[in-house]
Nucleic acid binder design. Structure first.
Lengths: 236, 236
DNA sequence: TAGTGGTCTAGACCACGTC
DNA sequence: ACGTGGTCTAGACCACTAC
């Protein structure tokens, strides 16, 4: 593990263990530098990482402060989906409806830069949170990258397997959100009424080298759909 | 303007002007360093900024590449709302329904760290995109920070005024998303049917020093609600 | 093995906040 | 005026990719 990641992790752990609240001040840079025996740029890099994660914010001339949001039970839009689950204590399970090798839909092929004749792994799951239906998920994995899947893998964390089992490095993703109404089929899977509101999240996942490897369409039960997002405005 | 921002801007402009596509390679670091007469760390900082904005991705051992998403007409969830409008060519207008000084709701007070007896500016607007209703927006501004607002300001970009007119520095924000059904009142403002699907986005905007200054609730017309989001997974 | 991006350092200087 | 974070540099060395 890299030094700046290590430092970031320790600072984050420190905040959690001491239950620091929004606005509480952390030690100044000089202190952190000597405490972690690191240069200014390295500590700064750690803090930038934590700022990106929404854990701290830095104020020039003043100090480094803890950032927290106030609401519990929200799903983080940026750190879910094989990145990390953010729902503390919530119990996530999956029913695998379908798992097979097939040809991609036109939409999947377009998003994965594949031909219609190429093979994809197709996974359809219903996911539950604390016993309630959370979402219906359909995923298309480029089979030339994700070369093997089975029921055991698919009923657990597919992304962990992709990382650890296949040694692939997951990079960035593009997400598209739509609001709409449940079709009869979707309502059936989610145990809801046809025409009820829904949130569709389509995501194209890429490896660090830019190759798209997974296109997924997730339909959320609107009653469970509380999402959370942290933004920084210093993007010009 | 800082050197690394300048460089980032020029690289971005270069990409746009030459209409570089997803995956196209940019000059290597050494070239960029001499081209912009900057050190490696400075160029790297520019590229990190562009990576955060979703403009490029960097691959160790290989190069720097253009990142683009494929769909047009989506609203960027992270760079709207006083950050920047992302919808090219789309015409955004506002009808100001209400503008007054009042006491905050309990929810607004909680999110703005105010007492119920404190004053807030309350703004209610309907926003249109290309002549169609886009959303209904209610905002509460901490009056001790945003000391003055009027109809002219409010019918244009409030955030530009806050930045330029008041000289305040906007920092980070927390966003909460819910899916639900339109109330009769909301449906009326948006010209839709009661019970139609909606997306509510509640946002708490903070200054760079961490002070919350604006709490807003935006109810989107689901027919116009196509949102876009770019994520990076290297947040551990 | 050559090329390319990533990490880390030490230090100079700058810009902002606070008192 | 002082303390604190932010920018920028030059350079050493490391890790991954591609050939």
């Amino acid at each position: 593990m890299l030094k700046y990641q290590q430092i970031a992790e320790e600072i984050e752990k420190y905040i959690e263990e001491n239950e620091l609240q929004q606005g509480e001040k952390l030690p100044v840079l000089d202190t952190l530098m000597s405490q972690f025996d690191a240069s200014k740029s390295t500590v700064t890099k750690s803090l930038d990482l934590l700022e990106k994660k929404g854990v701290v914010f830095q104020v020039r001339g003043s100090g480094i402060f803890v950032r927290r949001h106030k609401r519990k039970g929200y799903i983080s839009l940026l750190s879910n989906q094989g990145f990390k689950k953010d729902l503390e204590e919530s119990h996530l399970t999956s029913d695998v409806i379908e798992l097979k090798v097939r040809k991609p839909t036109a939409e999947a092929a377009r998003n994965l830069n594949l031909e219609l004749a190429d093979d994809v792994y197709y996974v359809k799951r219903v996911r539950y949170i604390n016993g309630q239906t959370l979402c219906l998920e359909e995923s298309f994995f480029n089979k030339s990258i994700v070369t093997y899947l089975n029921k055991e893998i698919v009923s657990e964390s597919i992304f962990n397997y992709i990382r650890e089992g296949l040694g692939l490095k997951i990079g960035f993703s593009d997400m598209y959100l739509h609001v709409g109404m449940l079709t009869a089929m979707e309502a059936d899977y989610l145990g809801m009424e046809e025409g009820a509101p829904k949130l569709d999240v389509e995501t194209v996942f890429h490896l660090t080298n830019g190759q798209p490897f997974d296109f997924s369409i997730v339909t959320y039960n609107y009653e469970q759909s509380q999402f959370f997002l942290q933004a920084n405005s210093q993007l010009l």
